[in-house]
Computed example of a mutant assay.
Amino acid sequence: MAKLTEEAKGVYVIAVTPFTDEGALDLDSVDSMVDFYEAAGVSGITVLGQLGEAPKLTSAESSLVVERMLKRLNGRLPVVVGVSAPGLAPMTELAEKVMDQGAAGVMVAPPWTTKTDDQSFAFYQSVGEALGEIPFVLQDYPLTTNVTIAPKVIERIVREVPNCVMLKHEDWPGLSKISALRAGSAKGETRRISILCGNGGLFLPEEMSRGADGAMTGFCFPEMMVGVVNAFADGKVERAHDIFDAYLPLARYEQQQGIGLAARKYVLAKRGAIKSGALRKPRPVLSAADIADVERLLARQAIRLKEIGA
């Protein structure tokens, strides 16, 4: 598989990690999930992300998931692997292992101890040096990491750390950050790197309008993100908004802290992507009322999609 580059675009869906009802790793569902995402038209897959329950996996299980996914894809789509760790040694060890297995690149979030602009730059400078020729994604997710990285710092990282090829943009609010980064690269002040956006796709149309190249996030209907990104590529901005609007109520529901991932996995199981919607313990469990909410949203979504011919 070719390595990840600054030219990456489209939808790199964040994969869930399938478990059985009892909490065991479900490798058969990794196969069906990969097939499901590929059929939805995604450009790539990101595994072991924040909503992939990566902290609940052992290192051996993490390797098994990556290996199984890469084997199923057989080079048809690039795979990015989250390798964030408290130290550079475990991060580098996992990164080298997954790249040897055939991954296209890795994703790294800053540790919560990063407080200043200089510390942010120094961390990613160290990451770049440790990874060598391995391309990496800078995950900018201050709502989870509590680390805010200003546009000027990201630009410095891009200028001085050549193997940083992508920004996973999840600042919120953060549309002005995309505008600032694109303005800088347009003036030739820094390289133009790929910007893929997260936050469940909640701001995807606006992010695309600001210069994003696509999405790197999860949603139980990845075809929504594919449809929005493709419509923008075709210059059909209003069509992109129509598609997005049809799915927005369910995407919003997925953003709830606690039960959001459970709702996503419930729908993915209902759609046949995975066998069970269970999360690994400790885990939230959807109540009957939660399930009724989701089913109502699905029914209304189907009606709206039919109305717009999507």
Results as ranks from 00 to 15, higher is better:
residue 2 A to N: 15
residue 4 L to I: 12
residue 9 K to V: 08
residue 10 G to V: 10
residue 12 Y to E: 10
residue 15 A to F: 13
residue 18 P to E: 04
residue 19 F to D: 03
residue 20 T to P: 06
residue 29 S to W: 05
residue 29 S to T: 08
residue 30 V to Q: 06
residue 31 D to N: 12
residue 33 M to I: 06
residue 35 D to T: 12
residue 37 Y to A: 10
residue 38 E to T: 15
residue 41 G to W: 11
residue 44 G to K: 12
residue 54 A to V: 01
residue 54 A to H: 03
residue 54 A to I: 01
residue 56 K to E: 01
residue 56 K to G: 01
residue 59 S to E: 02
residue 60 A to N: 03
residue 63 S to R: 04
residue 63 S to D: 01
residue 64 L to A: 07
residue 66 V to G: 03
residue 73 L to G: 12
residue 77 L to W: 07
residue 77 L to R: 15
residue 78 P to Y: 11
residue 78 P to L: 13
residue 79 V to D: 12
residue 80 V to W: 12
residue 82 G to D: 00
residue 83 V to S: 00
residue 83 V to R: 00
residue 84 S to T: 06
residue 86 P to S: 00
residue 89 A to Y: 00
residue 91 M to E: 00
residue 93 E to T: 02
residue 97 K to C: 01
residue 97 K to W: 01
residue 98 V to N: 01
residue 99 M to N: 04
residue 99 M to K: 02
residue 102 G to S: 08
residue 103 A to M: 08
residue 109 A to P: 00
residue 114 T to C: 04
residue 114 T to F: 00
residue 115 K to N: 04
residue 117 D to W: 00
residue 118 D to G: 03
residue 124 Y to A: 06
residue 128 G to S: 08
residue 132 G to R: 06
residue 134 I to H: 09
residue 135 P to F: 15
residue 135 P to H: 15
residue 136 F to D: 09
residue 136 F to P: 10
residue 136 F to S: 10
residue 138 L to S: 07
residue 143 L to V: 08
residue 145 T to V: 05
residue 145 T to N: 01
residue 145 T to F: 03
residue 146 N to Y: 07
residue 146 N to I: 01
residue 147 V to P: 05
residue 155 E to K: 09
residue 157 I to A: 10
residue 162 P to R: 10
residue 162 P to I: 11
residue 163 N to L: 11
residue 166 M to F: 14
residue 167 L to Y: 11
residue 170 E to S: 11
residue 171 D to K: 07
residue 173 P to I: 02
residue 174 G to D: 06
residue 176 S to V: 05
residue 177 K to I: 04
residue 178 I to T: 05
residue 179 S to M: 06
residue 179 S to C: 05
residue 182 R to W: 01
residue 184 G to K: 04
residue 190 T to C: 11
residue 191 R to A: 14
residue 192 R to L: 10
residue 194 S to Q: 13
residue 194 S to L: 13
residue 197 C to K: 06
residue 199 N to Q: 11
residue 205 P to Q: 02
residue 206 E to C: 07
residue 207 E to C: 07
residue 210 R to N: 09
residue 211 G to W: 05
residue 212 A to H: 05
residue 217 T to K: 08
residue 223 E to I: 13
residue 228 V to P: 08
residue 229 V to R: 06
residue 231 A to C: 09
residue 233 A to I: 02
residue 234 D to W: 06
residue 236 K to H: 09
residue 250 L to D: 14
residue 250 L to G: 14
residue 251 A to F: 10
residue 254 E to Q: 15
residue 257 Q to A: 14
residue 259 I to K: 15
residue 261 L to E: 07
residue 265 K to V: 09
residue 270 K to S: 09
residue 272 G to K: 04
residue 275 K to Y: 04
residue 281 K to L: 04
residue 284 P to N: 03
residue 285 V to T: 09
residue 290 D to H: 14
residue 291 I to F: 12
residue 292 A to S: 14
residue 292 A to I: 08
residue 293 D to M: 12
residue 293 D to W: 08
residue 295 E to F: 07
residue 297 L to Y: 14
residue 297 L to V: 10
residue 298 L to R: 10
residue 298 L to D: 10
residue 298 L to Y: 11
residue 299 A to T: 13
residue 299 A to L: 10
residue 304 R to V: 14
residue 308 I to K: 09
